[in-house]
Amino acid sequence: MPIITRGFRGHRSGDDERLPPGQYLTHDFPVLSTGPTPLIPPEEWSFTVTTETGVRHEWSWTDLMTLPAEEVTVDLHCVTRWSKLDTAWRGVSLDVLLEDVETVADYALVHSHGGYTTNLPLEDLLDGQAWVAFEYDGDALTSEHGGPARLLVPHLYLWKSAKWVRGIDLLLEDDPGFWEQLGYHEYGDPWREQRYQGD
């Protein structure tokens, strides 16, 4: 008879299947930051998409609030190995924001207030995979979690979901971001455990 039976862990079996390799489940919401928390009043917030030809598309906070928003419940996976399941967000899909943007770019470089950047393929921002999120768990997104608005790209490690997002450059060639310059994976799929370059 095994010393530890499956029964002891039975109530977690569903969660286990939702945990990518190397991750553990957490119920709090850890805050990781590369610098001081930017405090941006919504009336001073804006979001800019700049295409590879230099064409700029800009939305104010008021503009963002007039766009159709979605409520999404997603799992988060941080490269520091914690995962948080069933997190509830409200935000505007990048499909909406990029609908009228003409581009042949393959890559995106995301910029945040405070200087943080992260890169990912443009196709990973489309088809219902990414949002500019401004509510978490029914409340306005707090500054420590990236408010007034952050990028949410939950199918990639959480460092790609840039807090305090202020814009996206659409690029013809990939340009590594803040952590991607320092050995982290250019794509960051948690299910393939793409933590570091070469994974």
């Binding site: 990781l32 930051s33 590369t34 610098g35 001081p36 941080c78 490269v79 520091t80 200087g115 460092w159 952590w179 320092l182 050995g183 982290y184 933590r195 570091y196 370059q197 994974d199």
Partner: peptide, 26 residues
């Protein structure tokens, strides 16, 4: 210094500019 994950980021105590970053990969 901010971190420790995904890496350590050291900033100037005067202007907050990033002076040093260090990560450890596999």
């Amino acid at each position: 210094v901010y971190g420790p994950g995904p890496g350590l980021v050291a900033r100037c105590p005067g202007c907050d500019d990033v002076l040093l970053r260090v990560t450890r990969t596999a």
